[in-house]
Design a protein around this nucleic acid. Sequence first.
RNA 1: GGAAAGGUGGCAGAGUGGUCUAAUGCGGCGGUCUUGAAAACCGUUGUCCAGAAAUGGACCAAGGGUUCGAAUCCCUUCCUUUCCUCCA
Length: 424
Amino acid sequence: MLDRQLFRTELERIIAGAARKHIDAPIDEVVRLDSERRALLLDLEAKKAEMNKVSKMIGQLMGQGKKDEAEAAKAQTKELKDYISAGEQKEREIDAALLAAELVIPNIPHDSCPDGVDENDNVEIRQWSAQPSFDFELKPHWELCESLGLVDFARGTKVAGSGFIAYTGWGARLQRALINFMIDHQTLKNGYKEVYPPFLVNRASMIGTGNFPKFEEDVYRADDDLWMIPTAEVPVTNLYRDEILNSDDLTLKLAAFTACFRKEAGSAGKDTRGLLRVHEFDKVEMVKFTKPEDSYDELESLTADAESVLQLLGLHYRVVNVCAGDMGFKGAKQYDIEVWAPGVGRYLEISSCSNFETFQARRANIRFRKAAGEKPEYVHILNGSGLACPRLFASLLEVYQQADGSVLIPEPLRPYVGTDRFVP
RNA sequence: GGAAAGGUGGCAGAGUGGUCUAAUGCGGCGGUCUUGAAAACCGUUGUCCAGAAAUGGACCAAGGGUUCGAAUCCCUUCCUUUCCUCCA
């Protein structure tokens, strides 16, 4: 959500921002409802002030025993009361319509975010290491999963449907190892505080992070008002909903492991094989609450923290500055990290690190106070994956596969996995 | 799933229809005193909206309602605690 003041003072920026994102947003409606609301309030509050005065006077007259005068004053209030009651009804209608419109206005992309329509316009800003070369025929990860018995695709599908994965044997072990390795790294080395949040959240939380109302269709519903999280970003960010944070605690850095549930509707037919696009996956997520002036530095270090996992595991990747059109609704700036998967011959999006500035903080009402006595201000909120497990799993297998069909386990992961090699 | 009690400022906690502009205590901030600190004393201390400002309006879990007037009465929802039931 954007500052309502911005619609009065910097309307052009909002219009330009939505245009850069290629999102059609009801900006005119916000402007119209906002001015309608203010005109109404001006009038209504004057009437309320009058009403309060009369009511107070009636109270005093009653206290003095002047019953008749009190009754006379009462008779005069009928018209005022009806007027106020109608005005309040109108105010409720405008407020609801205004909020509904505001909730679907996209965040304004940062100046450093490139123009563009889709992922083809993203700008690569760096690579790490080089693509590995092989002197034998590479297999895609799903073949390695089958031959090494790491995943039982058929039975996973049987129990839950396509896009649900049953990891088996060393595959299950590797999955747990990745989670522990990453969460240990982010908490013990990079200074994030570990959180283990609920995997189901209520509607208010979904609105707080910006998933609702616009993207309700993408999320699994568990009950009337309980939703399965699409990312740990939702419960972790909302931990501090409606709170004023202590300035000394900023930047507050949290890391969480959760499963993530996504319908992935509309991507039918894409990446249907293997682990690249599934309905349930594990992920370690980092969330930062920062002072406004720190948020762009914190975005750089957040991205570096996510990258460091890939560096430790020796996986080639690139970082792209996501263009306005590909960034989506909530972000002001976003870096994607794409890991190289030689078996499928593609870079896989494995992390997305974003600065939302005050967009989420305003929705979730998360603020901080610069100093005692100062007015509370909205924090800046950032998050990034560190990292998503299935694509990391896939890349690892494809990069570390050997000519004999075995897969080597990179050194830092061995204590977690308990072996140095998967053998067919 | 059943029953009961309850939700008031940063915290504790009074308030059951009219100076509630919410008592009091703790905590925070400022001051007096002190070489400094503690203690004591004095003052101060919420958020949001509209307005250039003066000021006005709203907020006692949330949303409706009754009333000239609601923290207080009524309805709905949410949450918490305790007990029972069930359960890893």
